[in-house]
Nucleic acid binder design. Structure first.
Lengths: 125, 125
DNA sequence: CAAACGTTGACACAGGTGTGGCAAGGTCGG
DNA sequence: CCGACCTTGCCACACCTGTGTCAACGTTTG
């Protein structure tokens, strides 16, 4: 049996066994299992767990935020849409002649809508 | 008085007045105010609010996630640290000779620690 | 085999999110 | 000036996050 058990892993990573299961439950880490279903923690997992802990602590964030960051990098449309929304903020109406920015705002919105609906009905039969 | 009042804005954006205040409270949008303190909504704000609504709806996310995305782009160290953590996952131990990846794991960790502590004691007197 | 440990599931509880509603008090428009 | 609307608090409530604990049941090991 290569790999530490959950209690051993808990001790060397600073998480509680409870939280190690929770981290897995929320989809951040999928642990290897023994044939009988026991979680097995190897050096890489241990290191990742320590790093994760430090990451959460030093920026005061939660597992949910890491989960969202994961979604951001896995769903490009989501990333683009969020970026688009922020970009809109960056550009202020003073930058453009009064009657231009309204159209520009509208265009931004169009772009975003396009991004949120990646393939509307393109089923490619 | 240029700009709609909160109830008018609510009607044209689909948010409730309650939520418009809440959105401001959590730091996503800082509304202009009239001299007496009334929130004023111009066309750009209205459009941004509609877009935001669509964004949350179509990806089923909350204001908190947008807030975190904002943090990600405002705090580069946070972004790097999260990226570093994900990168570690990308590289699997099969890719490297068994006794190399342990050192590599450790190096990754070092890099991350460096990122989380931008200027340890470098006060540049 | 019995003790120690693992697994999942449930109850619990504090704090955050997303809403609504109500109160007390200031503002605006006719 | 009065009614309609705005502002900020506070109460409320449901659901999610992060933890702990305990139960019921399977596994490993001395």
């Amino acid at each position: 049996m290569d790999g530490l058990t959950i209690h051993e892993a808990a001790e060397t990573t600073g998480w509680s066994p409870r939280m190690l299961r929770y981290i897995e439950r929320v989809g951040l880490l999928a642990m290897r299992r023994s044939q009988s279903g026991y979680r097995l923690y190897g050096p890489e997992e241990l290191q990742r767990l320590r790093t994760l802990r430090e990451l959460l602590r030093s920026f005061d964030i939660g597992l949910a935020e890491i989960g969202f960051a994961l979604r951001l990098r896995r769903e490009p449309e989501l990333g683009s849409a969020v970026e688009a929304w922020f970009e809109t903020e960056a550009r202020r109406p003073q930058d453009v002649p009064a009657d231009e920015w309204l159209r520009w705002e509208q265009d931004k919105h169009q772009a975003l809508l396009a991004a949120t609906k990646p393939t509307p009905l393109e089923i490619t039969t």
